[in-house]
Design a protein around this nucleic acid. Structure first.
Length: 157
DNA sequence: GCCAACGTTGGC
DNA sequence: GCCAACGTTGGC
């Protein structure tokens, strides 16, 4: 059973172009520091799940690409790195708090911007568009996934 | 930079 | 366990 997700990245930190420049267009999704988002990765994600790659905290927030979950969950090493902005002194190596998955970009798309998403009646009940939604990872309904791919003219087998 | 909304912390 | 204070997210 394939599931679908929307994952937010800050382009100043890891844009879709940055990921495309990496080997296999794959990045370890470091820095998730919210338990709900972590639990989605741990309990919900499976290898091969579909991912909407979203740019946040930038001039034009929106969906900029289609990706896939390219690994199972593993420990996020940045939590143990004092030099990292994601360092968590309270997390112990024998009981790691924070996890990551690898994400592989499959298609860069035009920017399906946040205002365009909000204007699209078919997406009106998407979790990420709910008032006050701040989660960096949200599940996406199959019909929303299909509608977005159709809108972007993408077919993913 | 503002601020609404939400999450986390910690005193009690 | 409650909840006030504080911190963070993220659009604008």
């Amino acid at each position: 059973m394939t599931n679908y997700w929307l994952m937010k990245a800050e382009p100043a930190e890891a844009s879709i172009d940055d990921v495309l420049a990496m080997p296999n267009a794959t990045v370890g999704w470091t820095g998730v520091r919210n338990y709900q988002a972590r639990n989605f990765m741990r309990d919900g994600m499976q290898l091969g799940d579909g991912v909407l790659f979203y740019h946040s905290s930038c001039a034009e927030p929106g969906i900029v690409g289609i990706a896939r979950v390219a690994s199972g969950v593993t420990v996020d090493p940045t939590q143990f790195d004092p030099a990292s902005t994601y360092f968590d002194a309270a997390s112990k190596p024998d009981a790691p708090r924070w996890l990551l998955v690898d994400v592989q970009v499959l298609h860069k798309t035009r920017n399906f911007t946040l205002p365009q998403m909000r204007a699209d009646a078919a997406l009106s009940d998407m979790l990420v568009l709910k008032k006050g939604s701040r989660l960096s990872i949200t599940p996406v309904e199959p019909q929303h996934w299909a509608h977005i791919l159709r809108t972007l003219g993408i077919s993913v087998s």
